[in-house]
Design a protein around this nucleic acid. Structure first.
Lengths: 237, 237
DNA sequence: CGTTCGTCAAGAGCAGTGCTCTCGTCTCGA
DNA sequence: TCGAGACGAGAGCACTGCTCTTGACGAACG
């Protein structure tokens, strides 16, 4: 009952929720540029200025949606990856990849918000940092686990030594992994998000039709960059 | 002679040029969302409605800028790649990658326009198709040449057979190359543009500092996915 | 030479936007 | 109970893309 502080605060939380819900629906249909405070207010039967009692500016509303987006994507990846046996590292990688793609295709505008071009004058506030790494945290743990289990056999290669400081920073999401595996991971993640962005942003239109199969094959190639097991798509469905 | 048809047409072409120049400058500072016809008109000392004599809508002006962007990026990649000996396939690949990255970092808003999230209601007209493939045409030719010269030795792998039709479509920019190399190429391009997008859109902020070296190493890893020579960054500068 | 017709800049105006300020009203807590 | 704060409504400012009309200029044609 500490939750039901006052009736005021409850209705306030309820209204904030309703505003973000309507805004998210508007975002899904119109895109980030079409998000209009006045339209949200209109749909709620309020006057536009009343919205400012809850969100001091349009950017603050956008920030709330971005954080929600990070969490939704992160949760989708967490759930997709959790459904695979812990020792099936390739399976976990592929599940995570398909989870990213699936969520992005289902919520293209929200994906654009968090992995596309940043909105003009908008600067992501510090509040977003914890939510924004949920997806990559999952990806990092896969690599970390696979390395611990000795499941990674990448072709030997050496990153330039001047990158060791940067590698240490990235290693935060994948402990105990050597520098070379850090860079192979970042490179694979670029492949993943690069492909998904291509697909969501329409770069594959009129070119690639069987996109799920092509994506699956590409992520198997990325897995081999990670040194993660066989690449032949024929082996597994 | 035939170019200087009438004085009217010459001043018209001149004005169109001036409008796109100012618009491009505005785009560079404000981003796509901040491009304002009225601001362009103001800077030209015209009234806003006069702009509509030359561009029927804001989207048409944007289209002109997008086509210019495609051509600028394509030209940058063409020039960067042309500076390397024809039989140095790895060098050509790396030069093309660095050209993409360099242009993108120098023109982040224009890069966002062509490889970032598509602008809300905007649909790319057919007129853009020829310009938009200039960069990937260069990348395709590198793979095509390397394959012809027997310089590609990728690990054997087999793409699922249902992708053969799609592979044929992509092969248009890289003739004579087998299906598996087509998919390895598309995957490598995803790595390239995924990384560049990460960097331009700020995903590497507060994480990776020595970005040029990291990028170079990642593109060498991508080259090894292509089956293109050695990966060790220490071997070459 | 004079007229006609197309091109052009200018201005007013419409509908929409984010955002601010003020003004009554209502509610919660001391 | 009463005062402080939260709240919704409304007017208003500056801005946007876009349309329509008006009047001036210039080139081509009779």
């Amino acid at each position: 009952m500490t939750a039901s502080r006052t009736a005021r605060e409850r209705v306030r939380a309820e209204l904030i929720r309703e505003i973000t819900d309507i805004a998210r629906r508007q975002l899904a249909t119109e895109g980030a540029g079409g998000l209009s405070l006045r339209a949200v207010a209109r749909e709620m039967g309020m006057v536009s200025s009343a919205i400012y009692r809850y969100f001091p500016s349009r950017d603050d509303l956008l920030t709330a949606l971005i954080i929600d987006g990070y969490n939704a994507l992160g949760e989708a990846v967490e759930q997709g990856e959790a459904a695979v046996a812990r020792d099936d590292h390739l399976g976990r990688w592929l599940a995570a990849c398909h989870a990213v793609r699936g969520w992005a295709l289902a919520h293209p505008h929200e994906y654009a918000l968090i992995y596309g071009s940043p909105v003009p004058g908008y600067q992501a506030p510090r509040a977003t940092v914890e939510a924004r790494v949920r997806d990559v945290t999952v990806l990092g743990r896969i690599v970390s686990d696979a390395w611990r289990d000795g499941a990674l056999r990448p072709p030997s290669s050496e990153p330039p030594p001047e990158l060791s400081a940067d590698a240490a920073a990235v290693r935060e999401v994948m402990p105990e992994v050597p520098d070379e595996m850090v860079w192979r991971s970042v490179t694979s993640w670029s492949t993943l998000y690069g492909w998904v962005s291509f697909e969501v942003f329409g770069q594959f239109n009129n070119t690639i039709d069987n996109r799920e199969a092509a994506f699956d094959h590409a992520m198997r190639l990325a897995a081999s960059t990670l040194g993660l097991a066989a690449v032949s798509s024929a082996s597994t469905a």
